[in-house]
Design a protein around this nucleic acid. Sequence first.
DNA 1: GTGGTCTAGACCACC
DNA 2: GTGGTCTAGACCACA
Lengths: 123, 123, 123, 123
Amino acid sequence: MEFSKNKSIYMQIADYFYGNILLEKWKVDEKVPSVRQLAVDLEVNPNTVMRTYTHLQDKNIIYNQRGIGFFVSNEAQSIVKDLVKEQFTTDELPEIFKTMEMLGMDMQEISDYYNNWKSNLKN
Amino acid sequence: MEFSKNKSIYMQIADYFYGNILLEKWKVDEKVPSVRQLAVDLEVNPNTVMRTYTHLQDKNIIYNQRGIGFFVSNEAQSIVKDLVKEQFTTDELPEIFKTMEMLGMDMQEISDYYNNWKSNLKN
Amino acid sequence: MEFSKNKSIYMQIADYFYGNILLEKWKVDEKVPSVRQLAVDLEVNPNTVMRTYTHLQDKNIIYNQRGIGFFVSNEAQSIVKDLVKEQFTTDELPEIFKTMEMLGMDMQEISDYYNNWKSNLKN
Amino acid sequence: MEFSKNKSIYMQIADYFYGNILLEKWKVDEKVPSVRQLAVDLEVNPNTVMRTYTHLQDKNIIYNQRGIGFFVSNEAQSIVKDLVKEQFTTDELPEIFKTMEMLGMDMQEISDYYNNWKSNLKN
DNA sequence: GTGGTCTAGACCACC
DNA sequence: GTGGTCTAGACCACA
């Protein structure tokens, strides 16, 4: 996994969790990777992973069983969905729309980029 | 002008310049507000404005005439357009698309949000 | 380190970096002093050092690892060499030559000064 | 006349005077251009020229006859020569030598640049 | 009037 | 611990 410079690493790790939960790759009560293991896999400081986990736990997206690990909570799906959608529609989309105006782009162009992006994913 | 807390103030001031240049409110060789004046208008510290100006000057978007002020450079339009478009297509759009996938949204929904946003602007 | 008053402090700190990089005292990917530490060592305000670092980062001479520090970039050597040589040959040397003409000095005299300067360095 | 960005304009105008005096294009008691005229010729603000003249007058290089103009003083030659030589040997040359060391250049290379520069002047 | 630099001190996010 | 941003206030050189 590569990290963008525009966003903090621990939030990008959270994004990775959001994806896995929303797309149901990780189900309710399933164990998520250990802090240490994930830190090794992602080549980041364990503190950084821990920060993500603390953050997700605060939001009741994962829960902890002492000595065993972290697990996906019951409400994870709905919490994440609300969270992501909220931020998407109130922060990110308006930002995009403003930039579109500045660049004089219309929805069709965005749509083209989208199709392009999707076809690139397959390869 | 209100500042979002997600982004540094000096970069939001830069964004303000980008808009004015792209939409040709400010033309080539036109004088831009003085550091002190803009600081007063935006209610920020002059150092913060100075930081924006230094940044824009480094990117050859504005130039300085000693003792007189800053002016929009010849290539400002094209430099800004490249800059903004580059970041938009390589950073922001993919981010949006990823989130769309996660949320299971399609282009039609985005388009609806867009039209909604545009009609809100008019009011 | 003493600072000349003809040049801004933050640029003199940059010169110090140029020297260390060109003479390979600092190698690629080596960590450079932290902003705070260097500020203490040089007895200047951290903001002043920060200004140098931002400048060098913009020029891709150093890069940042979040929360860890600044490091010498791959291309640092060649960038600095180009930078310094460019300025030396197009700005400083012509200036010197013009003054030599005005003073009626020839290359031999300059050479004498040079040898003199070098022998003073040793003591 | 073109002005370098590295030096203040009024000092570059002073340099122009130094050259004319040292190379005896302007002799003792000869009238120098009026402030207004020179400002027009050089396309600078009259204040800037005035600043040069004040500076030169302070150093007894030119003197003023009220209502008539400025004139080259008796001691102009020797004063300028001392002034320029002093700055040249204590400020500029050491600076050059330091840069030479950093770039690993020797006197021969400088000499080559010098010959090159002189032959370019003729064209 | 203009920009340019610097200090002092603070607060924050991040690793 | 690291950098990043911002404020307040000052002083200077320059046009």
